[in-house]
Design a protein around this nucleic acid. Structure first.
Lengths: 131, 131
DNA sequence: CTTGACCTTCCAGCAACTGGAAGGCGCATA
DNA sequence: TATGCGCCTTCCAGTTGCTGGAAGGTCAAG
């Protein structure tokens, strides 16, 4: 299975797959022509990575999850731990973004948005003083 | 006003301020000793940038906003436009993160999180097949 | 035998900083 | 006057997770 096929199968771009090899997330074999030769196991790993990345796990988290996945004597508590930490990061990020959204949407509704220079958005950004 | 003072005043780290000079967001004067010498106007600009960044505007958006801010004949519609686009990006990002959160929190609650290897989180990441 | 779609490597760049090294400047204190 | 400390300077490298592009090798079809 060469890179194009495994790319189609996993949904990951070839570039990304090469990058994942670069950082040792996968270690495909090589054919005599120098082409990467992915086993089903490799393909499966890449699908795993794609799914984990789509849930927002960092590459380092993915590395951990992958090694837990391949460790038959893992404790599910370790997996849960990684996931819970990630969940917290997501929650914090959502809160941050929500705060931005609230502020910004208020400002946007206050701005009449015509050809006059007067603008509450800029006023807010500029703080109390004027220039 | 040298960089330390303007840093304290704006809340931006000196490194960031130097970076902003590097990319031409501010152009502080220089003293005879080579030190940057920030005017009140510079300090004000930096505070503006800090506020805009804290609302999640990209550097390029900040550049645009700053130039609108300094353009007395601007149309508030242009400012509103930038803000609305940014608001949309934020909304999309929140939706993405919410989707992750929903999936992840479901998985996390399903995982017993003990010393047994059995784990719904890994099962999900692995997809339908097993290895 | 050539064309075109693959594949390879390597280098550069994105965003927005941040850390660290190596060295200059300014002021207080011994 | 020396020296020590904290500030300032520049420059280079690293972060995260890819992505684009150049230059070239390989393979199957016509």
């Amino acid at each position: 299975m060469n890179i194009g096929e495994v790319s189609a199968a996993s949904g990951l771009p070839p570039k990304t797959i090469r990058y994942y090899e670069d950082i040792d997330l996968v270690r495909p074999a090589r054919g005599t022509n120098g082409y990467r030769d992915f086993s089903d196991r490799d393909a499966h790993k890449l699908a795993f990575l794609g799914r984990a990345r789509s849930l927002g796990f960092s590459i380092e988290d993915c590395r951990t999850l992958l090694s837990l996945y391949e460790d038959r004597s893992r404790a599910s508590a370790d997996v849960k731990d990684v996931a819970e930490h990630h969940l917290e990061r997501i929650a914090r990020k959502i809160e941050e973004l929500e705060a931005m959204r609230v502020t910004l949407s208020t400002l946007v509704t206050q701005c009449h948005g015509d050809d006059r220079p007067d603008c509450p958005i800029l006023d807010d950004l500029a703080g109390s003083e004027q220039t």
